[in-house]
Design a protein around this nucleic acid. Structure first.
Lengths: 339, 339
DNA sequence: CTGAAAGCGCTAACAT
DNA sequence: ATGTTAGCGCTTTCAG
């Protein structure tokens, strides 16, 4: 491992100049800069991130905290964030807070605080006030994605509006008994979306003059399996089976489609189904859905961090972050069959 | 941020003793150790990983390189590895080599070499000789998971044996025309498994005295969609439709099940289907499969690294790594319907 | 624009 | 068992 000193020697300049030339901080004449770059290349020199971080206080490393890895939404946001960060020369240190217990505490107490990261991205994780305060005290920028964190810049679609859009689509098609597969309460602790997605649904019903029937709601765990079971309950009901189901995620909606099929019901003739996400599989299943764009959300989160981390770069200001979402109508929704 | 010096002062010892007491390296009497810990707690002291790394040469950080994030196998291995590393006090820096192009090069040239990681875990990624050599030159331990990397300790199930087991299961049930949905060649560059999983299938056939019919093979891309399309081709064949299909992954097998249903074929009455993986969804679809245990693979990879990184700890030696796999029979396979 | 030199906060000999 | 001290390899004032 060649060090900065050898590069300096080979280039015939001081180590300070090498540092400036390679980092872009401070001014260096074009010719010397070139010399330095050549020398660095020749020696295969790469800065030691530790030495650099120690001296400068910047790590060029971002901590990303996620609750799960094997769920489409999370891994897609992560992918978007990772790629954007790589482009900006940042590494990603991943913290998977699966086991919500002592693991979580140790991540905050020992890992994030070791000066290892310049900033933190929290995906769909409701941090406690204490956790947020800790990060603030260290002056580490923090942005949230997918779940509102009090007192923190957060990137999230307007879940209530998304839910409304999905429900309104069904109402506009003429459905009057619309079931809803939402989140289980347990998950609501960390993601607020289950409840806001339910609120949007209910207010859409109310605004349309439709009754809110608790029997038409079933909680599930955001998986295909969960959606399947919930839909079976909803659709198996001997009287008053809903003519449409709005599920709070595509995976649950796909489960609902499979449940309908297994019950011998045709989608969308006998029952319309709509989800939220625009999951990779939505197209395959012909699922109508409200698309959100997790990959773009990850990228935008990075952009927000860069604005804080590099105010000098004068990034275009993003005043309010209203994230886009779009109704995508495929073949799982249609007008209800005439009674 | 309190520094080591303040802790030393408060505890009434030297910084060296603080370092020793907190890191466990070198010997410190029980009483002083306690004093130091108390002082550290009181001040909320956490070592600066950069300073520590710079001085010691160890980063307590492992680089994990993956080709995709949103595929079950990868994210599960990653999850297992991450959790095991966290337990051992290691951070994980994630490199997602999605866009196999210049991104990949920059990861190797700039990121991994910055002394940021103590070791590297490569998941299902066939590293080039040059890439391996680079890591070796830095004396960074490297272990591979899921794909054989020449000259590198690699953790992978015996794909040919796994494929054989799946195929033999079908043969034992009495199937004689067994279709295979395997990997597309393109993917074979980075994962060797497509071809070894095909080889195992073919040799099982041969050993059973069955012909290897190229018309019974369809490539796909390891997704549900891909498996669906391939299965449609296989099952739609006007003559000589296979009575069973062995897919090289559960996701493709699930696609095949859906395809069979859509064709009006009953599984397993009209066609038996088996996959590989024991994916989260396998149980839901009643899919027979050969389970491998990616989470455990991630954990074992970590264990191997720890053995190299901490030889003094005398980990129990794992001589040869024969990874477990098991046939899991569910409801998607049965004897063929009598012709 | 460039160089000299003082650290960044810790660890690891080397003493004691 | 503990203290002293010399770096680890860079970045960044401060001069010039």
């Amino acid at each position: 491992m060649a060090g900065i000193e050898e590069v300096a020697k080979l280039a015939g300049v001081s180590t300070a100049t090498v540092s400036r030339a390679l980092s872009g901080n401070g001014s260096v004449s074009e010719p010397t800069k070139l010399k330095v770059e050549l020398a660095a290349d020749a020696l295969g020199y790469v800065v030691s991130s530790n030495a650099s971080s120690l001296a400068s206080g910047r790590t060029r490393n971002i901590g990303v905290v996620v609750p799960f890895l094997n769920r489409w939404f999370f891994s897609t946001v992560l992918e978007g964030a990772q790629q954007a960060l790589l482009r900006d020369g940042y590494d990603v240190t991943l913290y998977n807070l699966a086991g919500n217990g002592s693991e979580r505490q140790s991540v905050f107490e020992h890992f994030l605080l070791r000066q290892r990261v310049d900033a933190v991205i929290a995906i769909s994780l409701e941090l406690t006030g204490d956790e947020v305060a800790r990060l603030h005290r260290l002056k580490k920028p923090l942005v949230g994605v997918g779940g509102p964190i009090p007192g923190v810049r957060t990137l999230a679609v307007d879940d209530a509006a998304v839910a409304r859009l999905a429900t309104d689509h069904l109402i506009a098609l003429g459905h009057r008994r619309i079931g809803h597969i939402g989140g289980v309460l347990e998950l609501d602790v960390d993601f607020h979306l289950p409840s806001s997605r339910r609120v949007g649904y209910e207010s859409a019903l109310v605004d349309a003059g439709l009754p809110v029937d608790p029997a038409l709601f079933r909680p599930a765990d955001f998986t295909i399996q969960g959606g399947y079971q919930a839909a079976k309950q909803l659709l198996g009901s001997p009287h008053g089976r809903p003519s449409a189901i709005y599920a709070a995620s595509d995976e649950m909606a796909i489960g609902a489609i499979l449940a309908a099929k297994d019950l011998g019901l045709s989608v969308p003739r006998d029952v319309s189904i709509i989800g939220i996400d625009d999951h990779d599989l939505a197209d395959f299943f012909g699922l109508s859905t409200v698309a959100q764009y997790p990959r773009a959300q990850g990228e935008k989160a990075v952009q927000m961090l860069m604005e804080e981390l590099h105010p000098e770069r004068n990034y275009p200001v993003q005043p309010s972050v209203a994230l886009p979402f779009d109704l995508v109508v495929r073949s799982s929704t249609a007008t209800p069959a005439p009674a």
